[in-house]
């Protein structure tokens, strides 16, 4: 009986170690997930954010995007965006939107990554944007977002964003 339990323990330890290795191993999918989380972190604006922190966040934002992006996002009330924008243009638009909010939080959930061709990938996730516009009440927007990424100069950069309507009136 003791031998059996020891064997079970050893097998479980191997299974656990294998699972941890599989989850933690560095790969392209993890790099893309990290890229999306980086975007969310840079868009997020905590209450009382200092100018230096804001400048630090915005300085690297354009580097997440390709030179030109295709955008197909249903406009939110008061905000609209062209179908084709440059990476710098999108970064400055995000910076502009951030100034209109006293607090803004972007979280990305359920991120799944797929690779169709080498050096290109698509990611699907639920984006939840919660914010308090200056002088207004708290607002929330949740969308299912599909993002396209391409590896440019060894780094994954966003090339397109599209949202999918989960409920259609």
């Amino acid at each position: 009986m003791k031998k059996l339990s020891s064997t079970v323990m050893v097998l479980l330890a191997f299974a656990l170690a294998g699972y941890v290795w599989w989850r933690m191993r560095p790969n392209q999918d993890r790099a893309i997930v990290k890229r999306i989380e980086d975007l969310a972190e840079r868009v997020t604006k905590p209450t009382g954010e200092t100018n230096s922190v804001m400048a630090l966040k915005m300085s690297g934002l354009a580097g997440l995007f390709a030179d030109e992006l295709a955008i197909d996002i249903e406009p939110v009330e008061g905000f609209a965006i062209d179908n084709k924008v440059g990476g710098d243009e999108l970064a400055s638009l995000i910076a502009q939107v951030r100034t209109m909010f006293s607090q803004l939080t972007l979280t990305c959930h359920d991120i799944s990554v797929a690779h169709e061709v080498p050096d290109e990938a698509s990611a699907t996730f639920t984006a939840r944007l919660e914010g308090t516009p200056k002088g207004d009440t708290r607002q929330t927007e949740t969308r299912e977002v599909h993002a396209q990424l391409r590896k440019i100069d060894g780094k994954w950069r966003f090339t397109a964003f599209r949202d999918e309507a989960v409920l259609v009136k």
């Binding site: 959930h109 359920d110 799944s112 996730f125 299912e144 409920l167």
Partner: peptide, 12 residues
């Protein structure tokens, strides 16, 4: 109703 996954869902 799930969106991209089950972490955020719509209750309807």
């Amino acid at each position: 109703v799930r969106m991209a996954g089950t972490k955020v869902m719509l209750l309807k």
